[in-house]
Design a protein around this nucleic acid. Structure first.
Length: 485
DNA sequence: ACTGAACTTATAGAT
DNA sequence: ATCTATCCAGTTCAGT
């Protein structure tokens, strides 16, 4: 009996080993193939699958080739390759090469230069309407810009122009505000910071970025536009209040791209050897992009000079989020898989020995640390099944709210996300609900649930201009938009 | 201190 | 209704 069991166990184990070996072999084949040519080949084994973006659409290739990420430097190319400047980048040979490889395969290509939106677009129809929509905001802000100070363009990201508390009881999920906008697991979801439209952008694990105009119901593609600008998990999407037609995206593939709707390209802004795990923008200096790179690294990209202006090692493991205090933008919070949250004073972070203002210790990896809208509190979410609340004039008060954050492998980690004021944070739970934690009461005071929510919402964003409008994204490419009447 | 393996978990799409 | 592929997260444990 005992020997029988042991044998079964052994068989299972060997089977596991065999499968792992196969997977590794596949990965290595990919790596070699992509080194030989940019045009990625399909996986050689039977695991090739097709996928439907939505039931209504026809099958799509989702195979994201595992590509060895190489910086321009290691490829012997000059840094940045003028990619920042879209005008100077009619870089014919590179562009045509890219086009060729993309049209052959509908996978995310490994493109070291600007990638045309047309080539990255994955849809049956045209994305013209969507691009025009983005550009229309641009014209609106142009008018505003001329009137106001164009010297200080974009002083604020996501300025909140409203009063009043959200009425939690009136929050509901209407069936028309649900859509599967992309395949795969969503890593990040963001509302376009524009008060008169409801557009969300989401990035998934496969390197896709999808946009959904929530209000264009019944229109072609249901207002959903899917692009494939990257080859790995999307770690950040950044809108800029001052220029809504330019959208930054960051990826584990080590690339930082700038989608420019005007030029209709995904420019390559920056590439590095390490994975980029998060992306943020300094509130007072929108030309400074902060991103977490590799194991504990934080880099600052200066969009004026087109180069990395600072590089620090701030943590012992990957940095999962970077956030700035709205009250005092010199204060930055980082959360890391090294189980800590750190507060930094940017004026004091030296190149040599960065010293944090404060360290909050969790028991396990910390997946997020976000400042409240007013900047007076900080909420951190950790695998140790707590949500940390940091408050007080000098952030000297710490407290914990118990919350199960065991998402496992297939669900993106939970990140407690602030709403429209300092009252509540919103965080997913494994029972397909949205837990609402009251800052005052330090506990879950309500859980949003709906029979329409058929999967676990794990990543959230509150509409920066609309109280009560909350987007939740799932591991299956769905987005739920909760609204308040 | 490091490396690698096992184990956990949910979902969409295929059967 | 049931089955299965997913496969770079994080942790624990076993072995160097």
């Amino acid at each position: 009996m005992a020997t029988q069991k042991l044998t079964e166990y052994e068989i299972k184990r060997l089977e596991n080993i065999r499968r792992n070996d196969e997977m590794l072999a596949a990965l290595q084949l990919h790596a070699k193939a992509s080194l030989l040519s940019n045009a990625s080949k399909r996986q050689r084994d039977g695991s090739a699958k097709s996928y439907k973006v939505s039931p209504a659409k026809k099958p799509k290739e989702t195979e994201t080739p595992t590509v060895i990420r190489r910086s321009l430097r290691t490829r012997g190319m000059p840094p940045d390759s003028n990619c920042l400047d879209a005008d100077s980048n009619e870089n014919s040979d590179k562009t045509t090469l890219n086009q060729a490889s993309i049209s052959r395969e509908k996978t995310s290509p490994c493109v070291l230069g600007p990638l045309k939106m047309r080539d990255a677009y994955d849809g049956t129809g045209s994305d013209r309407a969507f691009i025009d929509t983005l550009l229309s905001f641009e014209r609106e802000t142009e008018i505003g810009k001329v009137k106001s100070d164009n010297l200080n363009c974009g002083i604020k990201i996501e300025k909140r122009e409203f009063e009043g508390r959200v009425d939690l009881e009136s929050m509901s999920l209407e069936p028309e505000n649900i859509a599967r906008i992309m395949p795969g697991r969503i890593m990040t979801v963001r509302f376009l910071p524009q008060s008169d439209v409801n557009i969300v952008a989401a990035g998934n694990k496969l390197g896709n970025v999808a946009f959904w105009n929530v209000d264009s119901k019944g229109e072609k593609d249901n207002g959903i536009f899917l692009y494939r600008p990257h080859t790995g998990p999307i770690s950040g999407i950044l809108f800029q209040q001052s220029c809504l037609s330019k959208i930054f995206t960051s990826c584990y593939d080590g690339y930082l791209r700038l989608m420019d709707a005007e030029k209709e390209v995904f420019n390559l802004v920056h590439s590095c050897d390490d994975a980029i795990f998060c992306l943020s923008q300094h509130p007072n200096d929108v030309k400074s992009l902060y991103f977490g790179e590799g194991r504990g690294g934080l880099s600052v990209w200066d969009d004026r000079t087109g180069s990395v202006s600072s590089q620090w090692t701030l943590h012992e493991d990957r940095i999962n989020t970077i956030d700035f205090n709205p009250q005092n933008p010199n204060i930055m919070a980082t959360s890391s898989s090294d189980a800590t949250v750190c507060l930094w004073d940017l004026r004091k972070v030296d190149a040599g020995k960065p010293k944090s203002l404060k360290i909050v210790n969790h028991e396990r990896a910390v997946h997020s640390a976000y400042f409240s809208p007013s900047g007076s509190s900080l909420a951190s979410t950790s695998f140790d099944d707590t949500i940390g609340i940091l408050s007080g004039v000098n952030f000297e008060d710490t407290s914990r709210v118990q919350h199960s954050n065991q998402t496992g492998r297939w669900i993106s980690s939970f990140r407690a996300t602030w709403g429209w004021d300092d009252s509540f944070v919103y965080v997913g739970n494994m029972k397909r609900g949205v837990d609402i934690i009251s800052l005052d009461q330090r506990r879950v005071i309500k859980t949003l649930q709906s029979p329409h929510m058929t999967a676990i919402p794990c990543r959230f964003h509150a509409h920066p201009c609309r109280v009560g409008m909350l987007a939740g994204a799932t591991a299956g490419g769905q987005v739920y938009i909760w609204t308040s009447s």
